[in-house]
Design a protein around this nucleic acid. Structure first.
Ligand code: FES
Ligand code: FES
Lengths: 151, 151
DNA sequence: AATATATCAACATAAATTTATAGGAATTAT
DNA sequence: ATAATTCCTATAAATTTATGTTGATATATT
């Protein structure tokens, strides 16, 4: 049902991956590495990163030694920005963005319900940044290293 | 992106429509009427109502004079129940329900973010019932009747 | 200057899923 | 019997998801 598209899911993971390298150095990250680390095909990543570039969340550096880097610091990139870039909207139903989408909007009893949920989500994703995801990620990785054999 | 499927959207509207007739009488509502009132094809409604029937949210009466009625009072049917019946889950990403879905779950920095959003939504839809949708609906309809020519 | 490495662009295509329509069988009130 | 209606299965259309191909362009390294 209310599922995040793979574009949104993979795209956010791609951004977190870039954020991890952003911290370590200023060297660009190549999609080949992201592909191996995240288990997503390069071809698909190439398609997914296009809107992220258009929306100036990442910068590309062409040629040998090139790759992608975050356009801003992880603290300055909201999860909402990423989802918006990848999907164009953040609403649960089309009728929130486009009032002509549903004919029955004037008498529809569910419109306000979806609208409330959309605002809830939007507010949540507005408050979260890539930095938050990065910290979760690093915490999990170091925890996994501490007890490498358990489970 | 995070879009409610048409199944979820149409199915909820179908339930609100049944709720409107539930109040008025105990006579079953036929899909032909729902189809006309909601602008959704009968054939599609027939498919959408199956999971609602399986999950005992509606009862069907076959044959001439038959149709569908709510299995319980609108106050006793949560929006969450409807979405759950229609979609099988209420999570934003598969990995919430199925831990084997993503390989990288142990180190993924986005998992907790989607999980938080899922819980936010689930909590919201848990609190809302068909009755709430019904009241919104009736309020809008009577408001539309009061000023019929404006806009 | 030549070579290797990457992005970039424009496709094309295949697989899977969602969305939607269609035909007819089964059931029941009249 | 007839008409009304759900029920069941098939299939078509559209969209999403994913991979493949070909080559152009930019840049670091040798
Ligand atoms: S107005 Fe779009 S679902 Fe009701
Ligand atoms: S674990 Fe599923 S998206 Fe990260």
């Amino acid at each position: 049902m209310i599922k995040l598209s793979t574009k949104g899911r993979y795209g956010t993971r791609l951004m977190v991956n870039l954020a991890r390298h952003y911290k370590n150095s200023n060297e660009p990250t190549i999609l080949k590495n992201v592909s191996e680390e995240e288990g997503i095909s390069i071809r698909y990543l190439e398609q997914i990163i296009i809107p992220l570039k258009i929306n100036r969340l990442v910068k590309s550096i062409r040629g040998a030694g090139g790759g992608y880097i975050l356009a801003r610091k992880p603290t300055e990139i909201k999860i909402c920005d990423i989802l918006h870039a990848l999907e164009g909207s953040c609403s649960l139903v089309e009728c929130i963005e486009d009032e002509t989408f549903c004919e029955k909007i004037k008498t529809c009893g569910t419109y306000e319900i979806w609208k409330g949920a959309t605002e809830l989500l939007r507010n949540y994703f507005e408050k979260l940044t890539l930095q938050d995801a990065l910290e979760i990620c690093e915490k999990k990785i170091s925890a996994a290293k501490k007890r490498p054999k358990i489970k």
